[in-house]
Write a protein that binds this DNA or RNA. Structure first.
Length: 434
RNA sequence: GCGACCGUAGCUCAGUUGGUUAGAGCGCUAGAUUGUGAUUCUAGAUGUCGCCGGUUCAAAUCCGGUCGGUCGCCCCA
């Protein structure tokens, strides 16, 4: 608190970089709309109990990463570490159980108390998609396809791979879990310290260990695929077939487990190698038991979340902002006339900056710095003639335009520029994204 | 929670084996033109050298601590 510093793990998004972030959620929102998903939002904090129950007391997020506090009314509250629990709560609280399937898109800040590193912050932002009340495998396919389309539009699908796995239904999963615990318990001596802890909490995690000793033990570990019952096996087959039919490439990754307790059946991740240690860009899965566990009616659920910071680091450059027109009035009468002119242009959707400080040189400098396409110079001489001097900043030319023609002149010009831009698309000089 | 590396101007960085007023580029301000930007030229301003303590005649430089950052482990978006 001593200096004027942001809290560790938080970052300002300054005007220069904001468009990169907005581009991610605007793109996601647009694709979600095409899939028939409605946008919604829930509060950024909830009762601690919601996350504890929803994500599982033993999950890392709940056991060590929650931003929890007590408010003045002695309520235990927590800044949301993920979106799913909040949306499920809203589904139950608002009696939306009659409106299934509920297909929603959301985005906003999440909070986890972790040590910051590349692609990981304490306040970060996610785009999020959830479908409640749709137990069919076709829905898994739809949700994954939606994610792939967003990645495609952001220009990063090609540098991502889709990992897919089935965690089975509860029956298969408990059966497998038991076998797995027996197996690892018999090899305790060879396991790393981390994995001994995982054995207590989430034994399936050991399958994903990077420790060499663990890897050796894993070679002969029982495989979850062998323990799926017929229903779970059929479900997984249907999801894979649907993805193939949609032309979405994937790799089945038996070690893909996911940290949260509520997952069942499909689990998936879009992963990139371009982001250092945090390669997961979008991750999610099916959670058919969650709503019931939270106190709602038995309701299927599936969804995913994508890290906006991570996506923004990889995405194409956002569309360039529209260039302003700068009005440069000299003298009191001209300044008054300029105010009216500015309104007229803005009514016609032209971006207008008024340059009202300093001598003309300074005003033009400022206009140039704002990347103005034109300056409208309005001094005594122009006022007398009822014209403005229209200066084009790109070629330096200047000509007089009557007051009455200014709006038309500038809106026609803007159309021409738009056409130019569209002729030049596909340019991508962003080198730091690999 | 653990580990490694790093803190000098708004930004990117230089600063020799400890030695006198701590530098450059970019940016910023002003002028070369009292009504013309970007290009050019000239001038100017900018710093608690992260902070606290120690060693020394002398510390941006060496030592200890602390705070902050970056990257990695765990885990995740």
């Amino acid at each position: 608190m001593s200096k004027l510093q942001p809290v560790r793990g938080t970052h300002d998004i300054l005007p220069d970089e904001f468009p990169r972030f907005a581009h991610v959620w605007n793109t996601a929102r647009e694709v979600a709309r095409l899939y028939g998903y409605a946008e919604m939002a829930t509060p950024i904090f909830e009762f601690t109990e919601l996350f504890a129950r929803g994500m599982g007391e033993t999950s890392d997020v709940v056991s060590k990463e929650m931003y929890s506090f007590t408010d003045r009314g002695d309520e235990g509250l927590t800044l949301r570490p993920e979106y799913t629990a909040g949306i499920c709560r809203a589904f139950i609280s608002n009696g939306l159980t009659q409106q299934v399937p509920l297909k929603v898109f959301a985005h906003g800040p999440m909070f986890r108390y972790e040590r910051p590193q590349k692609g990981r912050q304490r306040q970060f932002h996610q785009i999020d998609v959830e479908v409640l009340g749709a137990p069919e495998p076709e829905c898994d396919v739809e949700v994954i396809s939606l994610a792939a389309d967003i990645l495609q539009r952001l220009g990063i699908l090609d540098c991502c791979t889709l990992s897919l796995n089935s965690l089975g239904d509860p029956e298969s999963r408990t059966a497998y879990r038991k076998v797995l615990i027996d197996y690892y318990s018999a090899h305790k001596a060879k396991l790393s310290e981390d994995s001994l802890r995982r054995l207590e909490r989430n034994p399936m995690r050991i399958l994903d260990s990077k420790d060499e000793g663990d890897k050796a033990v894993n070679v002969n570990a029982p495989s979850l695929g062998d323990y799926l019952n017929t229903a779970a096996r059929d479900f997984f087959a249907a999801v894979k077939a649907g993805l193939e039919a949609s032309g979405i490439a994937f790799t089945v990754e038996p070690s893909l487990v996911r940290g949260l307790d509520y997952y069942t059946h499909t689990a998936f991740e879009f992963v990139t190698t371009h982001l250092g240690a945090q390669g997961t860009v979008i991750g999610g899965g099916r959670y058919d038991g969650l709503i019931e566990a939270l106190g709602g009616p038995p309701t299927a659920g599936i969804g995913w979340a994508g890290g906006i910071e991570r996506l923004a680091m990889l995405a194409n450059d956002p569309p360039k902002p529209e260039r302003p027109v700068a009005i440069v009035p000299m003298g009191e009468a001209a300044e008054r006339r300029a105010l009216a002119l500015a309104r007229e242009l803005r009514d016609a959707d032209v971006v207008v900056e008024l340059a009202y400080k300093g001598n003309m040189k300074r005003r033009l400098q400022r206009a140039n710095k704002l990347d103005a396409s034109h300056a409208l110079i309005l001094g005594d001489a122009e006022m007398a003639k009822g014209v403005v001097a229209l200066k084009n900043f790109d070629d330096g030319t200047q000509r007089e335009v009557a007051f009455a023609d200014i709006v038309e002149e500038l809106t026609v010009d803007a159309m021409g520029e738009l056409a130019d831009l569209m002729g030049l698309d596909g340019i991508d000089d962003d080198e730091d994204k690999r």
